[in-house]
C-alpha cells in the first residue's frame, strides 16, 4: 500500500500472490489478482441474474435494471441513438471500475485502481476505442476533427488538438489513480489514529468518492465518443 505505512493483512498476501515470477522476472501481481476478484464478482452476479430472468423483476434483477436502464437513458440523451451501439462498453466500464473501487472498502482487499498500471491500461484502451469508432464512422475525413473550424486555422489547430487528445489518457489515468490511492492512504491513517471508530465515518465519504470517480471515468469516455461521432464543427 502507501510507501512506509503499515498495511492491513491482505488476502493476496495469505495466498502468496503479491508477487509472481514469470520467465525469471519477479513482477507485482497484487492489482491483477484483485482485478480478477472484481471480474469474478461481476461474472457471477451476471450469471445469477441471467439464470433467473423474470418478466416482473424482483431483488437483484431490479437493482441491475434500475442501474443499467438509468445509465442507458443518460447515454442516449447525450450521444443520441448512436449511443445504444456503444452502450455495452460504457456500462461495462462503469460497473467494472465501480466494483474495482469498492473492493478497496472491503477488509482484506485492496482496490486495483490504486495501482497506476490498471488505470493506464483502461485509459489507453478508451483512447484507442474512440479513435477507432471515429475512423470507422468518418473514414479519412476523421482528420477534419483535428483541423479546427476554419481551414486557415489548420496549422495552429492541428498541434493543439493533437496535444489535447494525447492529454486525455493521461488525465483519465492520473485522476482515477490519485483519488483512489489517496483514499486508501487516508483510510490507513484514520485506522492508525482510531481503529474501527475512526474509519466508519470516512467509509461513507469514500463510498461517495468511489462512485463519483467511476462515474467520471464513464462520463468522460461518453464525451470522447460523442466527439468522435458528431460532425466535425
Amino acid at each position: 500500500m502507501a510507501g512506509g505505512l503499515p498495511h492491513p493483512v491482505l488476502w493476496s498476501t495469505l495466498l502468496h500472490v503479491d508477487q509472481v515470477t514469470i520467465g525469471g522476472a519477479t513482477v507485482e501481481f497484487k492489482h491483477v489478482f484483485y482485478t480478477w476478484c472484481a471480474m469474478a464478482v461481476l461474472f457471477s452476479l451476471g450469471l445469477l441474474v441471467r439464470g433467473g430472468l423474470k418478466l416482473v423483476p424482483g431483488g437483484i434483477q431490479n437493482v441491475f435494471e434500475v442501474v443499467i436502464g438509468g445509465l442507458e437513458d443518460f447515454v442516449v440523451t447525450n450521444i443520441g441513438e448512436d449511443g445504444r451501439k456503444v452502450f455495452p462498453l460504457l456500462g461495462g466500464i462503469f460497473l467494472f471500475i465501480l466494483f474495482q473501487n469498492l473492493l478497496g472498502l472491503i477488509p482484506g482487499c485492496d482496490a486495483p485502481t490504486a495501482n497506476v498500471n490498471t488505470n493506464a491500461a483502461m485509459a489507453v484502451f478508451v483512447f484507442l476505442y474512440y479513435n477507432y469508432q471515429g475512423i470507422k464512422r468518418w473514414g479519412p475525413g476523421y482528420i477534419k476533427h483535428f483541423m479546427g473550424p476554419m481551414w486557415w486555422l489548420t496549422p495552429l489547430m492541428l498541434p493543439l488538438e493533437l496535444i489535447s487528445h494525447t492529454a486525455r489518457p493521461l488525465s483519465l489515468t492520473l485522476r482515477l489513480f490519485g483519488n483512489i490511492r489517496g483514499e486508501e492512504i487516508v483510510m490507513v491513517l484514520f485506522f492508525l489514529m482510531a481503529p474501527i471508530v475512526g474509519t466508519i465515518p470516512v467509509y461513507f465519504l469514500f463510498l461517495l468518492g468511489k462512485v463519483l470517480q467511476s462515474f467520471i471515468f464513464f462520463m468522460l469516455t461518453m464525451i470522447y465518443l460523442k466527439g468522435a461521432f458528431e460532425h466535425a464543427h
Binding site: F74, I163, S164, T166, S171, L174, F215, I216
Partner: peptide, 24 residues
C-alpha cells in the same frame, strides 16, 4: 444523474488544464 453530471464536469476542469500543459 443531473447532479452527478454537474459535479463530475466541475471536478475534471483542473486536471484537464494541467495534463494538456504537461503533455505539451
Amino acid at each position: 444523474k443531473k447532479y452527478l453530471d454537474a459535479i463530475s464536469t466541475a471536478g475534471v476542469i483542473g486536471l484537464h488544464m494541467v495534463s494538456a500543459t504537461v503533455v505539451g
